[in-house]
């Protein structure tokens, strides 16, 4: 009871969403049934969006739902459902190529942790500044000025991926 009393409402909500995110992410990875994985991914995306809301990042939170839950996951579910129901292929996830995968994961995790420690976090508390009322104008300005090149490169990468997917789909049909 003392532990509960010392936690503030904000913390409780934070831990709840963090818990949901992590547990559903674990289900995505460990579930043998790919449909369950896809469903579980929805909770992960929502949990992350909720964490963004708690960080006052309104624009990012809504975009997270719009792009990931409303767009990408729908397509994912589409693919999973079509392959399991229409072509009735039993899709199970398994473990293969353990060694290369663990090396890659170790490198990625190391990089993320490194960035986490190196970065000088510009939190409002650290800057002694007020939170901006709205984040969308700041993000727009940053994307159109400082980060214009990465932004455009990302869109070109997406375009290339789309063209590639269309090419593969076309070739299948000809046979």
């Amino acid at each position: 009871m003392t532990l509960l009393a010392s936690l503030e409402l904000f913390d409780i909500i934070f831990y709840f969403f963090a818990f949901v995110t992590i547990v559903s992410a674990a289900v995505v990875v460990f579930s043998r049934n790919i449909v369950h994985s896809a469903f579980s991914l929805m909770f992960t995306f929502f949990g992350v969006a909720a964490l963004y809301v708690m960080l006052n990042a309104d624009f990012i939170a809504v975009t997270q739902v719009l792009v990931y839950v409303g767009g990408i996951l729908v397509l994912l579910l589409f693919g999973v459902m079509l392959t399991t129901k229409v072509i009735s292929v039993e899709m199970k996830t398994g473990t293969l190529q353990t060694l290369p995968a663990s090396i890659l994961v170790a490198v990625l995790a190391g990089t993320l942790c490194g960035i986490f420690w190196i970065t000088d976090w510009l939190t409002p508390v650290a800057r002694n500044a007020e939170l901006p009322a709205t984040t969308s104008s700041g993000i727009g300005r940053a994307l159109m000025t400082t980060y214009l090149l990465p932004f455009e490169v990302a869109s070109v990468v997406l375009l290339v991926a789309m063209l590639g997917a269309a090419m593969i789909a076309r070739r299948e049909r000809k046979r």
Binding site: D58, F59, V62, T63, V65, L66, V69, G70, A133, T134, T135, S136
Partner: peptide, 11 residues
């Protein structure tokens, strides 16, 4: 909400 329109689109 600050991003009302986006909220509608997301939902």
């Amino acid at each position: 909400v600050n991003v009302g329109i986006l909220y509608i689109l997301a939902l």
